[in-house]
């Protein structure tokens, strides 16, 4: 089955992140100088501007910082999925990332809800880290 929605154009900065997701891990950069994680992956730490970064496997747990329920699709490929929840997740380790919350009841999502990562395969190359309510 073909995948009709936008796929990430993976680059040198993000390749380890997407490869880890393909293997079922959430790996994000960790700075050896300031000890903070960041997202999305960069070559220089946005907290302290150090380049001593490596990818670290994180818990995949977090909370919903905010979200929107898309009642209209963002392009024809999403039409079968409306309504769906796009959320900002605050990971336990600190960084915030956008993702989807998979749920049968879009009204059940709240700011502050606890969530956990799940991995949803799109193509051979791309697996998305989505989240589910816990």
């Amino acid at each position: 089955m073909s995948y009709d929605n936008p796929l990430p154009v993976i680059d040198q900065d993000s390749a380890p992140y997407w490869e880890a997701a393909r293997q079922g891990r959430l790996d994000i950069p960790l700075c050896a100088d300031c000890g903070k994680h960041h997202f999305y992956p960069r070559t220089v730490c946005p907290h302290c501007f150090s380049d001593k970064l490596s990818f670290d496997t994180v818990s995949g747990r977090g909370t919903v910082h905010s979200f929107t329920i898309s009642r209209r699709p963002a392009g024809p490929g999403f039409a079968d999925e409306v309504p769906y929840v796009v959320a900002l997740i605050d990971l336990q380790e600190g960084p915030r990332m956008m993702s989807r919350i998979e749920t049968d009841d879009v009204e059940s999502v709240q700011i502050g809800s606890s969530v956990e990562v799940i991995f949803v395969r799109a193509t051979d190359e791309v697996t998305f880290p989505y989240f589910k309510l816990t």
Partner: peptide, 27 residues
């Protein structure tokens, strides 16, 4: 287009730009 920073947002299907404003409103 799903390149650079947007590779981490566009694939999730948020309506742009209204979805970002909606998240701010909800917050």
């Amino acid at each position: 287009p799903s390149v650079l920073n947007m590779q981490h947002e566009t694939p999730y299907g948020m309506l742009t730009p209204v979805g970002g404003y909606a998240m701010a409103a909800r917050r």
